[in-house]
Simulated assay, not measured.
Amino acid sequence: MIKLSVLDLVTVREGGTAREAMADSAALAQCAEAAGYERYWVAEHHAMDGVAGGATAVVLAHIGQATSTIRIGAGGIMLPNHNPFVIAEQFGTLDALFPGRIDLGLGRAPGADPRIAQALRRDLARASDYFPQDVVELRALFTGEPALPIRATPGLGADVQLWMLGSSLFGAQLAAALGMPYAFASHFAPDHLDQALEVYRRTFKPSPWLERPHVMAAMTVTCAESDEEAEFLGSSMDQSFVALRTGTPGRFKPPVAGYRQTLPPGQLAMLEHMRQASAVGSAQTVAREIGKFVERTGADEIIASGATFDPAARRRSLELTIKALV
């Protein structure tokens, strides 16, 4: 069976609170651990009313305390928003608290809102240009190779598994050059998926940390007792995607029956385009769609996104999904 992992945005429901979102994420991580998922990742987003994972390392400490064996990590940290030394200290601390369980996925996209750049006191355009150099520096802060004039404590010697994230050819090329595992954000940006994976595998250079290419691809996954129920539950994610693409993001909305039938052609086409990296339906449907996607991509792992308005429904989705693939 292919390895399955979980991607969590720590979604804040309409009418809910960030505190509730944190409790829901801890319960979801416990469910994923009990069901046999490989890893549980939290994504960094800022200034979004419906996403509570901005202080990613702090959220991961909360998730780590609620679990005991599942790998936990960032999917990912947008490195242009930070300096490598601080990230080395944060994730070195997480490794000290939860040894042998920490992943650190690194992304180059800092976010498009200039107000975020101002709030972070960062020149994000320039920081993005330094991204490859910062990745190498961050790895050196953990490994000590090459030696740097300053040590991160905690950090140096930490057993943190570094991943490269991407939705374009840039991340694929950099992951290959540095000999890193590669995670592709196909759940919301599938356009360059096939080309990026081909480039990554063809140009991969083995490193002391990874001998051969390793790919994890993201899918939107919602599994329920029937196709109809899953489509209904998945309409909350549909609303979230539409709101994001139309510049009106907000808190996570309740599901709406027949939601797609209410959309104008352009928004419906956008959702259908993203469905090439999704599995929404009964256990049989989800198993079939994941199987087709794995056959297409040759992925070594699948990481499942796909929040539901009712947190219990997503926990049930995780359980049904992994059982369907056994």
Rank of each mutant, 00 (worst) to 15 (best):
K3N: 10
K3F: 02
S5H: 03
L7A: 09
L7K: 13
L7P: 08
D8Q: 08
G15V: 02
G16D: 12
S25Y: 11
S25W: 05
A29S: 03
E33I: 00
A34C: 03
G36L: 01
W41A: 02
V42S: 08
E44A: 12
M48K: 14
V51K: 12
A52L: 12
G53S: 11
G53F: 05
A55S: 15
T56Y: 11
V59C: 10
V59Y: 04
S68Y: 01
S68D: 03
R71D: 14
R71I: 04
I72F: 04
G76K: 15
N81Q: 15
F85M: 14
I87T: 10
A88C: 02
F91I: 02
G92S: 12
G92Q: 15
A96C: 07
P99E: 07
G100P: 08
D103M: 14
L104K: 11
L106K: 14
R108P: 05
A109I: 03
P110Y: 12
P114D: 05
P114A: 10
Q118F: 10
A125F: 07
R126H: 14
A127G: 01
A127E: 06
F131M: 04
Q133I: 14
V136R: 12
T143R: 06
E145R: 15
P146Y: 13
A147M: 11
L148Q: 07
R151E: 14
A152M: 05
A152N: 02
A152C: 01
P154S: 02
P154C: 00
G155P: 08
W163A: 05
S168E: 07
S168P: 05
L169N: 05
A172T: 06
Q173D: 10
L174P: 11
A175M: 09
A175Y: 02
G179N: 07
G179A: 09
M180E: 08
S186D: 00
S186E: 00
Q195W: 00
E198I: 12
K205H: 01
P206L: 08
W209D: 14
A218F: 15
T220S: 04
T222P: 08
E225I: 14
S226P: 04
S226W: 01
E229K: 13
A230W: 07
E231F: 12
G234R: 15
G234H: 15
S236G: 13
M237F: 07
T246D: 12
G247L: 03
T248G: 07
P249I: 09
G250H: 02
G250W: 04
G250F: 04
R251C: 09
G258K: 02
G258Y: 03
Q261D: 12
T262I: 05
P264H: 10
P264N: 09
P265L: 05
Q267G: 08
L271A: 01
L271C: 01
E272Y: 01
H273V: 00
H273M: 08
R275E: 01
Q276W: 00
Q276C: 00
S282H: 10
Q284G: 15
V286I: 04
A287C: 13
R288I: 01
E289W: 01
E289R: 09
E289L: 05
K292F: 03
D300S: 13
E301H: 13
I303Y: 05
S305V: 14
S305G: 15
G306L: 06
A307K: 09
F309D: 06
F309L: 11
R314Y: 02
R314K: 11
R315E: 02
R316A: 10
L320D: 03
I322M: 00
I322W: 00
L325S: 06
